[in-house]
């Protein structure tokens, strides 16, 4: 195997390679005693903490809930964000009215939303839906508005020449043209949605990864806390893979056009 194909192989498994590097550095720091062992356990301790949670079923239950919430939240927020972007595109009055509201809500961090949301909605699925959507909706929305506004006027006129209605032009020309940029927003939103779910579970939940993390932290089960942190990171990869699959379905042409790898 020559150097080039070795490099290509590294690139192909880059996520795994970076993961192994982090693990190696981690273990090195732990083994050298650079940090107190109590707060910075080695990889074997973390793995056994992880396996313990797998064995008693805690992890699967929490992980499933968290991932499901993040996925549903992301899907809902993406649909809502794109819907609002379409509305903004159809109605300039709506866009002007909605812009200040968006500008006001958007910078609020997820953690700051939780107390108010608990007062308003109590604990439960409504709370999660509200928090996730409130913080996740913005990238699809803003990207959608920008992308719909910048569709080539010539493409739109091509549709007009064929007698297409406004709605047909939206469906057949503007939305497909805007899809790559919308997906860039959804990709970014997927990270935010994961953060929002875990934060909400930490502050107001009674299950899920965030809740488990807080419980382990209070019980000073440090290896488990670190194991859960790694699980959160892995969830980022899972969600990213799901978004990527959808992106290939709906905007694959753009990935092929710009020569991006699968």
């Amino acid at each position: 195997m020559d150097g080039f194909s070795a490099f290509a192989l590294l690139l192909r498994f880059r996520a795994l390679v970076s993961f192994l590097i982090i693990v190696a550095v981690w273990q090195l720091v732990a083994a050298l005693g650079l940090a107190p062992e109590k707060y910075f356990p080695g990889i074997p301790a973390i793995v056994s903490g992880f396996l313990g949670m797998v064995a008693n079923g805690e992890l699967a239950a929490a992980e499933w809930r968290t991932l499901l919430r993040a996925m549903l939240g992301l899907a809902g927020a993406s649909l809502l964000g794109v819907g609002l972007a379409i509305l903004s595109d159809i109605s300039p009055a709506f866009r002007r009215g909605f812009a200040p509201i968006a500008a006001l809500i958007q910078p609020i961090p997820p953690a700051a939303v939780v107390p108010m949301a608990v007062f308003m909605l109590g604990l439960g699925p409504k709370l999660y839906a509200f928090i996730i959507i409130l913080v996740t909706v913005w990238p699809p929305y803003f990207n959608g508005v920008a992308a719909l506004a910048s569709v080539s006027d010539i493409q739109i006129r091509s549709g007009q020449m064929l007698g297409l209605s406004r709605w047909q032009i939206l469906r057949q020309i503007k939305l497909p043209a805007a899809m790559p940029e919308i997906f860039a927003g959804i990709r970014y939103a997927s990270t935010i949605s994961l953060i929002a779910v875990v934060v909400a579970e930490m502050l107001a939940g009674h299950d899920g990864l965030g809740f488990l993390l807080v419980r382990k932290a209070f019980a000073i089960r440090i290896p488990e806390v670190y194991a859960l942190m790694f699980v959160c990171a892995a969830n980022g990869l899972v969600l990213n893979a799901i978004v990527n699959a959808a992106r290939w379905q709906l905007a694959g042409w753009h990935l092929r056009m710009t020569g991006q790898p699968a």
Binding site: S152, D153, S158, M161, G163, P176, M179, A251
Partner: peptide, 21 residues
């Protein structure tokens, strides 16, 4: 008053007139 049936246009800027998808 609107694009009539029976008229077609070929635009100056082909790269922005075709649909890349």
């Amino acid at each position: 008053t609107a694009p009539p049936k029976g008229v077609a246009v070929v635009f100056q800027d082909y790269s922005r007139s075709l649909f890349p998808w």
